[in-house]
Amino acid sequence: MKTKSTREAAMRAIIELAGQDERIVIVSPDSLLASRAVPFLERFPDRLIEVGIAEQNAVLVAAGLATTGMKPVVISYAGFLTMRACEQIRTFVAYPGLNVKFIGLNGGMLGGEREGVTHQFYEDVGILRSMPGVSVITPADAGQAYKATKAMFMREEPCYMRLGSGREPEVFPDDTPFEFGKIRVVKHYGDDVAIFASGFIMNRAIEALELLKAEGINGLIADVSTVKPIDSETVTEILKRTNCAVAVEDHNIYGGMSSAVSEISSLYHPCRVIRLGLNDIYPRSGHADELLDAYGLSVQSIVDGAKKAMSK
């Protein structure tokens, strides 16, 4: 499958936005290269604030900048941001509701793949989802990351966007829209089962839907690209039609999108929701596709999950 970098796509959007708004600045805890920000630095040399390998300080500096009316974005690896600088995000950005954007790289197993557990992050969405006042966006490919970046900067509030390694499968046509806070049904063959998916495993979810169709099970795929605030109305509508679902994400099964879908189900339409993700264990280094296959996110696992959801 063709891949395209979500990191480059997001940076392209930031550069375009920064060309129109001189208050947009990048705060970099030595993430210039990882975030593909060299073209930004070349074009706006005074607007990339390098603070060295110091994520906590990067978030504080961004908070301070935001109090003066600047529009900072902090880009770093997802875990270094959401775990090492967790308290700074919560207390100094989310609590006062400052207009700071966060972009977390290497989201999921797929993001960190061969680097191993220290550089794979499957807790970020859950951590931030538990924090009042932070929106969480999980694009599925580069095209969506570009549009999500633009949508994120339209909002004057703390937002987090999860990106990957830079080798994400291209799943959606370029003209696919992104609407903040809305779930989009990507494919709809029938109401036998719903597959809720978010992030860079969308290609696997789509493949699973096609396999199910070949077996006579006609389901649908819903792209949950905004995990918080989640579009609970659409989740409920879908569950009312299908009465069962499988929720798939490259994240620990606790705290992420699948937890959010289960919470909505328990409140508005109780039914079986199978959660597929990392099963509360630490994986290991490996090629991205092999890792996902080994740790419960193979296409077959999604197919099996869907069947399990449908079984009474």
Binding site: I49, N57, L60, V61, G64, T67, T68, P72, Q88
Partner: peptide, 8 residues
């Protein structure tokens, strides 16, 4: 760190 951000 906050002060640094404000100063900048």
């Amino acid at each position: 760190g906050i002060g640094l951000g404000i100063a900048l």
